[in-house]
Simulated assay, not measured.
Amino acid sequence: MAKPGRPGASKGGKGPTKGSGGKNKRALEGRGPTPKAEDRAWHPAGKRKAAAERYAAAGGKGRPSGPGKGGSNPNRGGRAKQDDDTETVTGRNSVLEALRAKIPATALYIAQRVEMDDRVKEMLSIATNREIPVLEVTRPELDRMAGFDGVHQGVALKVPPYEYAHPQDLLEEVVEAGETPLLVALDGVTDPRNLGAIIRSTAAFGGQGVVIPQRRSAGVNSAAWKTSAGAAARIPVAIAPNLTSTLKEFKKQGVFVLGLDGGGDVELPALELADRPVIIVVGSEGKGLSRLVTETCDQIVSIPISAATESLNAGIATSVALYQVATLRAAAD
Score class of each variant (00 low, 15 high):
274 A>H: 05
215 R>V: 13
166 H>G: 03
61 K>S: 10
163 E>C: 07
122 E>D: 09
86 T>N: 13
173 E>C: 00
164 Y>W: 09
145 M>S: 02
111 A>S: 13
299 Q>M: 07
126 I>M: 12
158 K>C: 10
60 G>E: 15
197 A>M: 10
112 Q>G: 05
122 E>R: 15
45 A>T: 03
106 T>V: 11
105 A>D: 12
270 A>G: 01
155 V>T: 07
265 D>Y: 09
27 A>V: 12
291 R>Y: 13
251 K>R: 15
329 R>H: 14
71 G>V: 04
103 I>L: 14
42 W>Y: 14
167 P>K: 00
101 A>Q: 12
204 A>D: 01
178 G>Y: 05
59 G>T: 07
286 G>N: 08
145 M>K: 04
50 A>S: 13
10 S>M: 12
282 V>Q: 03
225 W>N: 12
125 S>E: 12
191 D>W: 00
289 L>C: 09
53 E>R: 07
188 G>W: 01
133 P>Q: 12
305 I>P: 02
102 K>Q: 13
11 K>F: 04
181 P>G: 04
153 Q>M: 11
272 E>L: 15
29 E>Y: 13
156 A>M: 06
92 R>E: 09
108 L>T: 14
224 A>L: 04
256 F>V: 08
326 A>R: 12
176 E>G: 00
268 L>D: 02
91 G>F: 10
322 L>M: 07
64 P>L: 14
322 L>F: 15
272 E>A: 15
52 A>S: 14
238 A>Q: 03
129 N>F: 07
40 R>V: 14
49 K>V: 08
17 T>I: 10
267 E>F: 11
62 G>T: 07
17 T>K: 15
107 A>M: 10
181 P>Y: 05
208 Q>K: 08
177 A>R: 06
41 A>M: 13
135 L>T: 10
260 L>V: 05
310 E>F: 12
146 A>Q: 09
129 N>S: 15
94 S>T: 11
121 K>R: 13
175 V>C: 03
24 N>I: 02
4 P>C: 02
297 C>P: 07
226 K>L: 02
319 S>L: 07
286 G>W: 01
68 G>P: 04
301 V>G: 02
270 A>W: 01
237 V>T: 04
203 A>V: 00
30 G>E: 14
158 K>P: 00
98 A>D: 09
43 H>W: 04
123 M>T: 05
249 E>W: 11
56 A>E: 08
35 P>S: 04
167 P>E: 06
159 V>R: 11
22 G>I: 03
295 E>D: 11
110 I>A: 05
274 A>W: 04
322 L>P: 02
301 V>W: 08
130 R>I: 01
23 K>H: 10
108 L>M: 09
323 Y>W: 10
174 V>M: 01
235 I>E: 01
99 L>R: 05
66 G>L: 02
38 E>H: 12
261 D>L: 06
